[in-house]
Amino acid sequence: MWNRSPGLWICVALAVGAVIFALLATNPYNTSLVVWILTNAVLASALRFVLQIGELNIATAAFFGIGAYATSITAVFLGWPFWLTLLLAPIVAGAFSALFGWVTLRTKGPYFLLISFAVTEVIRLIYTQTNAIGGNSGLIGMFPPMAIDAYYPALAVALLAATLFVLYGVERSDLGRLFKAIENNDAIPRSVGLNVIYLKVLCVVIASAAVGLAGGVHAYANNVIAPSDFTYFVAILALAYVKIGGEGHPFGPVLGATVLTLVGQWVAGISAWENIFYGAVIVVTLLVFPGGLVGLAARARGLVTRGAR
């Protein structure tokens, strides 16, 4: 997989570059922006990961929140060590998603989408109604240990980038091939002795553990979390990253998250127009280059090689 793919080495170089940037940049705005880009890249990649089995999982947002809350609760109230609270984020998110998937993945398409949407909103409402975990105002005071504090953005970027590589590795493995087979025609894997429900749950658990870790990382990066950070809209934005970057390639969501997060810093100034802007970008992308930026790049490369011949 490594020797055949120069693109993968470029991605490794990009990831190392991002870590070094987060380590050296002195402006805290810039370092937190890099962490935020990588967080969005994980959200988008996890959303696309479940799209492999053909399902649009809005609950990606919910498991991001569950990871963030798992880390924050154990850090703030229980005072557990930093690494343990961070490790708990993917485990708790993964465990919840296993239960969620086992019940809901018997449905497909619009049914699954609506259930995943409802679950996301119900979990958010539970946060707002539970005063013990801060209710509407959420939790504050998640700080990395003093010894790590200065390097935390670099650590966050490294963890998130590693998560992206793990998702990529699974997609390229036998397991990834099975996910695609389920999306293509799930009767075939069923007919040759495979447990399709189990595989679908596994797909959701892997993606949810990834966003759970991103949630834990986010909690320490932001020092404060609130229920409003984990609405269904997180998944909608992730979908925008996937569509604009390009769904057909694992690098698509990373590219989409990077471009749109950077652009988002600019459109944040136009307040009410922000969501209209995102909506317009999605519509234009789907109309003009449905393969996203990655698809556009592939097409451009095709034109160049044809021109060279």
């Binding site: 091939r177 695609k180 087979a181 293509n184 025609n185 009767a187 075939i188």
Partner: peptide, 10 residues
């Protein structure tokens, strides 16, 4: 299978 008997995209 009589119909859809393979993974057409793979």
């Amino acid at each position: 299978f009589q119909h859809d008997s393979l993974l057409s995209e793979m």
